[in-house]
Design a binder for these strands. Sequence first.
DNA 1: TAAGTTTGTCATAAAATTGTCACCGGCGGG
DNA 2: CCCGCCGGTGACAATTTTATGACAAACTTA
Lengths: 229, 229
Amino acid sequence: MKKILIIEDDKTIIEGLEDTFSFHDFQVFTAVSGSEGIRLFKEKKPRLVILDIMLPGIDGFEVCKKIKSIDPGIPVIMLTAKSQESDKLLGFELGADDYVTKPFSIKVLVARVKAVLKRSAGKSLKEKTITLGAVEINLKSFTIKKGGTEHALSPKEAEILTLLLDNPEEVIDRDRIIDEVWGDEYYPSPRTIDNFILKLRTKIEKDPRNPEHILTVHGAGYKFKTNSS
Amino acid sequence: MKKILIIEDDKTIIEGLEDTFSFHDFQVFTAVSGSEGIRLFKEKKPRLVILDIMLPGIDGFEVCKKIKSIDPGIPVIMLTAKSQESDKLLGFELGADDYVTKPFSIKVLVARVKAVLKRSAGKSLKEKTITLGAVEINLKSFTIKKGGTEHALSPKEAEILTLLLDNPEEVIDRDRIIDEVWGDEYYPSPRTIDNFILKLRTKIEKDPRNPEHILTVHGAGYKFKTNSS
DNA sequence: TAAGTTTGTCATAAAATTGTCACCGGCGGG
DNA sequence: CCCGCCGGTGACAATTTTATGACAAACTTA
């Protein structure tokens, strides 16, 4: 579940956006001021920020600058009432990734968000197929080929696998998996995660009982190893 | 050299566009009225049309309709002074492929033109017939031959099938299907899509209950497989 | 090595998604 | 004007995925 943060002081707009983006399977956090926004940003670590320029207290440009200094890679979409080019330019200079002028159509905004996310995740693994010896992982087609047979991945399986693959050699603890795959308002039982790992192993590993790629780090989490050497 | 046709009554704009697109290696034809535009369209057979909505005589919408009736595949980009959603909607309904609001930046327009051309070039599948074992798909004539019998495709069926065919092996989720086939503005019920898939399957698959080509990826979308191995 | 945790595995329950079919309204052709 | 096709919906069944609990196995630590 993708997390996004909306910083906007108009409650009406917030409400509408919250509904819409929830509907489109985003987990939405909202802030009505710049400082709250920055706090939430640090706390929730969203994948994208929608940011109004006109804010009480710190203005949107400052917030953008601050956010970008925390994580330069995070996509930011600016909202503004003025359609003036100068603002737009300033926004882009400060690192905004896209720009939407009020009044905007919700549909357009959703489309932009998706586009920006896609762009920022562009070079991600989803484009490629990963080959590990006799195993071929293709996230784009939700598919794993092992030996001669092809296994299908379910959405959750794919998400977990993507997370592991995105951070090879790095230990990912359960909290992180839960946070990134389920979002932080849901707490599946610990067994749930084991089960997905189990299923992934039967699909990826030659000998699921002796995994070579999806390794358990007892007491800490799981880790993905690319070279089985 | 790609031919484009610009239909626009403002001479200043025409001049600017002509320069710019020439510079970008397009061969440009221009018309200052709808009827002249349609005549030139038939005569020059351009790859893309840039069309102002406000025209003396026949208005842009009519011209668009006419052009699309001559060649439904031709990309049309609409220009307008009004940024009103309603106009946009009408434009899209009549088959405009993109929409640019005056005053526009030339850069943006060029980018749009290239994007639209790229998109429509991808549809070159439409030229070919695809053969899958005993099944023959002909997007150009909206026709599928399975065994001895020939099935006709409805427009929507064809659009969905084209989308799948354009991205073989790739999982296309429902949102994407909706975006690309219905557009941003409309949300059909989930059942609607199932139904089209159902209809496509009865036309393509040998055993519609056990599809070999149009596969469901539960929770994620649909996927087209070419080789039924 | 034994106790205490953490993880693996399996069966099974719960939830979500998709398949299928019947049916409605609009539109164009005969 | 009637009929049939197309696009669209709703109800319900079928299927698949997700979640959980019980218990075995493995690991840590003392």
